[in-house]
Structure formats: C-alpha cells, structure tokens
Amino acid sequence: MKAPAFSYLRPENISQAIDFIDIYGDEARWLAGGQSLLAALNMRLAAPSVLIDINGLSELAGISVNAGKLIIGALTRHREIEHSPLVAQHASLLALAMPHVAHAAVRNRGTFGGSIAFADPAAELPACCIALDAEFVIVGRGGERRVRARHFFTGLYETALQTGEILVAAEIPCARDKGRAAFRELARRHGDYAIAGLAVQAAVEGDVLRDVNIAFFGVDSKPVLAEHAASVLEQGAATPARIEQAQHQLAQDLAPQDDVHYSGAMRMQLARVLLARAIGDLVNLETKSAAR
C-alpha cells in the first residue's frame, strides 16, 4: 500500500494552478484534503504522474454571504462548515448533513469541493447541493462558468468538470423565511457511506409543502432528484395518505440496482421509509403509521 511515484506541484495562486493543469492535463490530479485520493493512490487504484496541491490557495477557502447567496469555497474543510453560523442560518441542510460525513478526523482534513468533485454516489454533500439548488463555480483557461448542481453529477464518479478546470466554490441561494430542511441516512455504522439517504429542502407552512427538492444518495450511480415524489407532496397538505402516495411515486424516480452489499429492493424500501420520515421531520408529523 505504497503510492507509485508522482511529481508534486504546489501553485501559489489559481492562475498558476491553471497553468499547471494546462501543462499536465489528464496526467495530473488536484490534491485538496486527500481523504479519498491518497487512499486511492496507496491502493494503486489511481496512478497520476502529477499531484497539484491546492492547499495553499487561501482564496479557495472560506464561507461568506453575498447578494442572497451563501458562498462556500471549494477548499473549505468539512469541519468549518459543520460549525459555521452562516451555514446554520442560510443552508441548515448542510449543517444537518455534516455530522454524517465520515468521522471527525476525516472532516478536519476533507474539503467541501473535494467531496463534490469526487462525486461518490453515496456521499452526502452532492445530494445536499442538489436539494439546495446550488450552483458550482468552475474556473479554467477560458475563464469562469457556472453549472447547476442538478446538472453537475453525470455518472459514477463523473461530473461536468472538464480537464483543465478547477471547482472553486458553490453558491447556494440563502434559505427564505419558510425554508426548512430535513436530512436522513441509514448506515450500519455511524460515519460509513449510507445504504440510502436523502436531503430535502422545502418551504413549509403548517403541513403544506412548496418548492420541494428531494435528493437521494446511495441509491444510484449518482445523486437523484426525486421529482415525481416532490410534485405529489406539492399538491396539498402532507397527510399520511399524501406521503404514502409520494412513497409510491418513488418507483418513478428511483431504480436502485442490486450490488454486493444490498438488493435494489432493499434500498427502495429504505428510500420509501426515509422519505416518509424526512417529510415527518419537516412537518413534525408522527410518521410511524403512515410509513408502513
């Protein structure tokens, strides 16, 4: 478990980072928190010839609010998000999710952008960004572009990022008055990747939900927006019957496959249960009877 030899570069600013990636292209990988990449190198699952260490790029780190948007720099550590009052105020979904992201030791090093760009299908943050309708800010030789989170994740560990580009930040619309969040996942041990999980953001008034975004993770090769279920829930009060109807609609949204650990049917069952419980969290309903 020793990494194959690689060259190491440490740019001093974004423009130099882009210069480096222009030179090495696919041969290079960005090194941020290293919590997934270094393990992959040591297991020889990846063998880039160059690592470009962006940990010195302080302009990529930090959390701020500007023009109604919460901006999280790609190099911001999970721990900072977990404890950020700005995040708690404007994107409480992330605050709810953060304790489920691996363990404290990983959160101390691991970065927000690293988790987004790595795009593990069972990771929490990609789904949260979809539910929050975040936009990702991407920089390359040609300048800056923005991609909505719901279009960013294209497949298993695949994203809209092109060679030569770097993810610099996420911009998240600040939650409005009625904005409420729910987050749930099921992992057999705390801190593991979930068997299934979901992130929900909605406007909630009493038991009426509007603007419902439900993003599941761990159930497909990428996070999935459950639009059919959401539209059912937007049709009226979140009664047990409506929640049950939304659970049925998940069959239109999700098609989990069997894998070495769990059957697709198992993940589907868990997704249904989680949906009911998360909606219950949102409207403080007692969901036990409805979730059956």
């Binding site: 057999r188 041990r189 705390h190 801190g191 593991d192 990747y193 070495v260 650990h261």
Partner: peptide, 11 residues
Amino acid sequence: LMDYLVPMAGE
C-alpha cells in the same frame, strides 16, 4: 475496511 464492517465503538 470500508466494505468489511468491523464493529465500532459508536454502535
């Protein structure tokens, strides 16, 4: 150790 689950203190 990611896929083979050993018991952890938390559980």
